[in-house]
Design a protein around this nucleic acid. Sequence first.
RNA 1: GGAGAGGUGGCGGAGCCUGGUUGAACGUGCCUGACUCGAAAUCAGGUGUACUCGCAAGGGUACCGUGGGUUCAAAUCCCACCCUCUCCGCCA
Length: 429
Amino acid sequence: MLDPRLLEERRDEIVESCRARHLAADVDATIALYRETNALRTALNETNRRRNEHQKAGKGKLDPAAREAHTAEGRRLKDTVAVQEEGLRAAEIALERGLRALPNFLHPESPRGGEADFKVLATSGEPRRFDFEPKDHLALATALDLVDFERAAKVAGQKFYYLKREAALLELALQRFALDQIVAEGFLPIVTPDLARPDVIEGLGFSPRGEESQIYSIAGHDLCLIGTAEITLGGLYADSILAEEELPLKLAGISHCFRTEAGAHGRESRGLYRVHQFSKVEMFVFCRPEESEAQHAELLRLERKIWDALEIPYRVIDIASADLGAPAYRKFDLEAWMPSRGEAGDWGEITSTSNCTDFQARRLKIRFRRTREGGESHRNELVHTLNGTAIANARALVAILENHQQRDGSIRIPTALVPYLGTDRIGPR
RNA sequence: GGAGAGGUGGCGGAGCCUGGUUGAACGUGCCUGACUCGAAAUCAGGUGUACUCGCAAGGGUACCGUGGGUUCAAAUCCCACCCUCUCCGCCA
């Protein structure tokens, strides 16, 4: 959510952000609602002030006639307050609805345009040249008896999977490897709940309800399965005021992630690329506004460090405006080269890091107390929040299997991962 | 799932029976100053959040889990809901 006080001052910028994200929103109507709300609040405050004075005046003894007049006036003021409160509440609801429809500001350098208009910021590694016909990860994993989709479908449905043998170990190895990388950089490891209340999910800018929702709801309970630990990590400090010395506060969340993938059927749906459940280590940062850009660069650096160590060729892209989603001010993805995805363009998303500035913090009421300078009075400020993927398991498995496959169908394990997995090769079988 | 207790300011904890001067005693923590070579101890003052008006100093309004009710007036009385904790049972 945006700061309503900035609405007028940065109107053109907001209009531009809506347009560039292909979001229809009436900025001017929201500005009008903000003004109206303030006017109504001022009027209500004035009535309340008069009412307070009136009540103080009625404390002592009054003769019967005066008491009767006093009571009548009190009733009148009470009714006025009730009417004004109702009007104010209606205006606030409308304003809130208007504000919720508005996306975050856009970083000046975020490419404007649709999904295909991203900008490649960097590439790392060379796509491997195979001297044999490479297989896709599903064929490799099936041959090595690493996955079972058919039985998973019987038990849980399409797009669920069993990981077996080294794949099960690889899941844990990847998580621990990624965790060690970032804990060494000051991230606090946290295993989070895999479920969250809908209001927390909304606070982070996701929509838990609705037809096209990516989020599972638990029948009979006011709970949803989280699509990412971003939700539980952000929610961890909802309604909090952090000390400035605590910032930047860096968390490494370990969770399962669940996604309905509504509307995604048939698209890129083979194997592990797009599934309903996976494990993820997620980085989340709370920081002061002036340092969020640097922190965003830092998250990107850590993601690259992890994927460099896994010896996967990738490119870094600056996501274009229409593909950002509402909360993100700027977003970088790492896309791994995936030999099987010839028609799809060879590159597949493996991580994503966003700077959400104060957009989530405002909804979640996460603030910090700036240390006062020279005893000056202070104002609490909203923190900036950022998130980034350290490792998302299903996708990581795809990248590793396809990139490190050998002619004999075995998989070479990257050196950095060998101590975690306990072997330098899977197969051949 | 059964029974009970409770939700008050950074924390602890009064107030609620007996409604008004309570944004809230007291303690503690924190900040500033004094004392000290420095620290501890001690003393004095300050110290909630949000919105809003103001260049500022400062002012206004709201908020004692949430919503509703009673009343001229509610943290205090009534109702509903949410949440937390303890004990028992059950499962891991």
